[in-house]
Computed example of a mutant assay.
Amino acid sequence: MTEHVVLAGASGFIGQHLAAAYRARGARVSTVGRSGSDASWGDTAGITALLEGADVLVNLAGKSVDCRYGPENRAEILRSRVETTRELAEAVLACTAPPAVWFNSSTATIYRHAEDRPMTESTGQIGTGFSVDVATAWEREFFAPDLPATRRVALRMAIVLGDGSALVPLMGLARAGLGGPQLDGPWPATRARLAAGTHHREGAGGGRQKFSWIHVDDVLGSIEWLREHEEVDGVVNLSSPNPTDNRTMMGIVRRAVGMPVGLPATRWMLELGTAVLRTETELVLKSRWVLPERLVEGGYEFTHPHLDEAVKGVVAERRQRIGGRG
């Protein structure tokens, strides 16, 4: 019988990768989203029909956090995660033969800014601020309903790398000679940003903020491993077992694209640049030090455990796909 995989919020980089991989191995892939999907948000009956008898549900829905955290964007970042998760739960509950397992995207950003030790599922400390509030609300909504026939796993994903990921603009910066470390430092906070929890407080200097990551191939690999290990539920960190720091990461990117030098970006440059680009410095300055304790202890073998190999592979894949320098 053909495997049926339902992907919610599949229009982004990760969702497209998963859909292509499952279809390549002969699975039937259905999608939940906006226009062009097999079922649309707001049509709970249609989503229920799609989920009836499905083997697995993977939910990746949520507005991108690569934006400026003004009131409207903050509200949409939260709504697009919590309300879609709530609607999927209602649909799963209405099924007579619900999916056996539901993987819901979460984020490793839920942990605090960590410079002293890594965050694992068993010892990690939840942080504070807007991004953390979104993540905790998201997971709370996911685990709140009673769904006895469906195992649930929240995927606390680190930064996902691949052709089309956040790595691509970093490659562009490196080629332009701007691929040095992103340097933290003092920056004044407005009352509004303090109240909203969107001000990044000064942390590690010298580009030593930790950088936790995972290759998109290992996102798929982790999901498949978790499907096989039915004893695992709850929260699982999806990150390479070998995190690094920002300075080292940018050096790896420079070498991969063949640029020997890279100018660093100081905090004031980052604040001005992110304001122009309509994004946030937290995305590069927060120290994310995350380890995949449950995957490693369970015996999952990473396809891309080391950053230098992973980045070289992404650069080569992109060059092959679009030609030239990529």
Rank of each mutant, 00 (worst) to 15 (best):
K210A: 14
F103Q: 06
Q125Y: 00
L167G: 05
C95L: 12
F211G: 03
P292M: 00
T303F: 11
W289T: 08
L194I: 11
A100G: 15
A61Y: 03
F130C: 02
W187I: 01
L88I: 02
L88F: 10
G46N: 10
L194Y: 01
R288Q: 14
D38Q: 10
L295M: 10
G124C: 12
E293Y: 10
G12I: 03
L295H: 07
S287L: 00
R152N: 14
F302Q: 03
G9E: 05
M1Q: 11
G323D: 05
A49K: 15
L78I: 15
A166Y: 01
G172M: 09
A192M: 10
H306L: 13
R79P: 11
A176F: 01
R201H: 15
K210S: 10
S11V: 05
V290F: 10
V168Y: 01
E228W: 03
A100V: 14
V276K: 10
H215S: 06
R79Q: 13
V56S: 09
I14H: 03
Y22S: 02
A21M: 09
D217P: 08
E72G: 02
A204C: 00
E228Y: 04
V58T: 13
D308E: 15
S165N: 06
H17C: 04
H229A: 03
G179L: 05
G251N: 07
G42L: 11
M119I: 03
L161R: 06
E3W: 05
W41H: 04
V5F: 03
D233P: 02
E52S: 09
F13R: 04
A94R: 09
E52T: 00
A10Y: 11
F211M: 04
M157C: 15
K312S: 15
V216C: 04
E228L: 11
H306M: 03
A91H: 01
E301T: 15
A158P: 12
